[in-house]
Every structure is written in C-alpha cells, then in structure tokens.
Simulated scan of single mutants.
Amino acid sequence: MQRVFFLLPAWGLALLAGLAHGAMGLSEIPGAAGDGPVTVFYPSSSEALPVRHGRLTLDVAEQGTPVRGNGRLIVVSHGSGGAPWVHADLVRGLVEAGFVVAMPEHRADNYKDVRNPGPDSWAMRPGEVSRAIDSIARDARLAPLLELDKVGMYGISAGGHTALSLAGGRWSPAAFTRHCEADLEGDFQACVGLITRLTGSWLDHIRKWGALFVIRRRFSDAVPHEHHDPRIAAVVAGVPFSADFDLATLATPRVPLGLITARQDRWLVPRYHSDRVLAACLPRCQLIADLPTGGHGSLLSPLPPGLTGLLGDMLNDPPGFDRATALPEVNRKTIIFFSTHLLL
C-alpha cells in the first residue's frame, strides 16, 4: 500500500497533463421528485469564465461540454446551511484529477432554506445522496462518461454525519438527545446550532433549560437510522457531527473511511465527535489530516468574506491558522485517498 502512495503523484501528473487545456464545467441538473437540484462539476472542453455565485467568483464553464475524465463520481454533502461554492477549491482539484463531482441540495438545510437542520435533516441526507447518484445516471450528457459501481462520498460537519452514515454508521435522534443531556455545556453549539450561545451570564441557565426542553420534545425517537448504498465505495468525513452514533457500527466501516479533524473546532468539539470515531475505527479507518490550529470552517475553501456574528464565529479562521499552506495539502491528501480506493 505504501508503494501506491508513492506512485500516485506521478500518475496524477500524467492525468493532469491530459486535462491541462480543459476547464471545470458547471451544470445544475434536476434532482429526484421532491428533491432539490444537483450541482455538478466536471472536466469540460469549453472555455472557463469568471462567474459570480453568492459572495464568491469562480472560473467555470457554465453548461460547458463534458469530456471524459477518469470515469468516477464523487458526491459531496454540504454542511448545515451550506452551498456548493464553498467547496470549489477541493472540487477543482478533484475535477483536474478527472473526477465528476455532484452536490445535492439538502432539503430545508441549505443556503436558500435553513428551516430544519439537525436530526430531521440527517435522517434524509443519505437518501438524498443516493438519489443524486440516480440523477447523474439519468443525465444524457454525464452518464455515458461514468461508471457508477464505485462512487466516492465526501462531507463536512452535518455532511460529515451523512458520510459516516454511508460508511455504515447507525444513529438515532434519542442518542442525540442523550448526548446533549450529558454534555450540553461542553458541546452547546453542536446541540443548538446558530440559535444562541452561552455568554457566562445568568441567562445561560435559561438558555440551557430552553435548549433541553426543545431537544427532548423533538428528538425522542430511539429507532436507529442507517442507509446502505452499494455504489458508495470510499468515504471521507471532515469535522463530522458524530456524538449520536453507535460506535460499534463504525468500528469496522463498510467501506474505506478517511477522517479530517480540526483541533480548534469549537462547534463540533473533537473529543465529543471526530476523536470518538477515530478511537473506535483506527486502524480500520485513516486519519487523512489533522489541523492543529484549524477551526470548524477551515475545510471550506474558498471561505466567503465578511462573515460576522455567530456564523463568523463558527467559520472564520482561528488565530494562527495558515489557510494558504494547510488547505492545498489537505485537498491533495483527500484526492489521493479517493484515487487510491476508486481508481486502483
């Protein structure tokens, strides 16, 4: 296995040389009935132009002509309230390596609609990933360029929860409630999201009481959730919410599983989330990268400018984090992980 990792960079350079005159195509295709659209990035023979998406400008060939790359698909599951554009740097690296990348829009938990994050969304997301693969399989332009028997899956934060589910993990809303009852103060933001924060004042008592009142009423279902898609052949989970998983189900992942962690993540504190998974699955999983000074938003790239308030506190870089150095290396290792398990 070690020899494979040494050979991959040279193999990758040869592939990139073949794509050097192409561009990253961008299209949006319909999802399954009841689902949102699927955003797709792919190798293209068309010209790339600067296109504005939200706060970011990307060089893409919108509706560009697809060309065959390496024949493999990666599905990306965004975080709560997330959008495709904040994964563009990783996606560009995957496309340059020949992959097609598809991003389903998770219902009621995306940048257009944030009505229902948390366990309700987590229960729907794995099925939305599977149906996104189905949508790609029906697309007349993309389907002929792909073999869908070995699909990669990547997710961060809530998308990391999706990733762990597709790697074989089983969880329940009641387990989420038990975690918040046991560790509400230490993992407050993971339990309540962007609704409020603890400030150290006397009002914190009311905030904690209110949070538990709502959580206990909404998330008492003890029926375990699991989802198996035999097409998923490799999974990467970045800074995942994972405190509600039965760790025995992740001790031997169904498929190759890689994790990316950030030591300064104050929203999904590692000791409650990624560290638990690693303790359960190593050495049968792989720690792709650990960011000693990285925070919860450190895997988003490019990071939208001007984030303020609780959202800025969650996503902006902690002091001392060198994004320009850290992220290209993390993305490189992620691409190697997928190439190893999907192409060889």
Rank of each mutant, 00 (worst) to 15 (best):
V4I: 05
L8H: 09
G12V: 13
L13A: 11
A14D: 14
L16T: 11
S27C: 08
S27E: 08
G31D: 15
A33E: 15
D35R: 11
P37A: 15
V38M: 05
T39G: 05
S44Y: 03
S45W: 12
P50C: 07
V51E: 14
R52I: 13
G54H: 03
L56T: 04
T57V: 14
T57P: 14
P66D: 06
P66R: 01
R68I: 01
G69R: 09
G71V: 11
R72S: 08
L73W: 09
S77L: 06
H78G: 04
G79R: 00
H87Q: 08
H87N: 15
A88K: 07
V91Y: 10
R92M: 13
L94D: 05
V95Y: 11
V95D: 00
G98V: 08
G98W: 03
A102I: 12
M103N: 02
E105W: 10
H106Q: 08
K112Y: 11
K112S: 12
R115Y: 04
R115N: 14
N116S: 12
D120A: 13
W122G: 12
A123E: 01
M124Q: 15
R125Y: 02
R125K: 13
V129M: 06
S135F: 05
I136Y: 06
A137S: 14
R138W: 00
R141W: 02
L142H: 00
P144H: 12
L146I: 05
E147N: 15
L148S: 03
K150P: 12
Y154Q: 01
H161I: 09
T162Y: 06
L166D: 10
G169A: 02
S172I: 08
S172C: 13
T177S: 08
A182Q: 07
D183H: 15
Q189V: 14
C191L: 02
G193R: 00
T196D: 09
W202N: 15
L203K: 01
K208A: 09
W209S: 10
F213R: 15
F213N: 13
I215K: 03
H227S: 11
A234C: 07
P240R: 00
F245S: 02
T249V: 05
V255M: 01
P256D: 00
G258I: 12
A262G: 10
D265K: 07
W267Q: 04
V269P: 06
V269T: 09
P270I: 04
P270Y: 08
P270L: 06
S274T: 07
D275H: 09
D275I: 01
L278E: 02
A280E: 01
A280M: 10
C281G: 01
D290I: 05
P292G: 10
G294T: 00
G295H: 04
S301L: 02
S301T: 14
P305Q: 13
L311C: 13
N316S: 07
R323D: 02
T325K: 12
A326S: 08
A326G: 06
L327H: 09
P328N: 00
E329L: 11
K333N: 05
T334I: 03
F337M: 05
F338D: 07
F338I: 01
L342E: 11
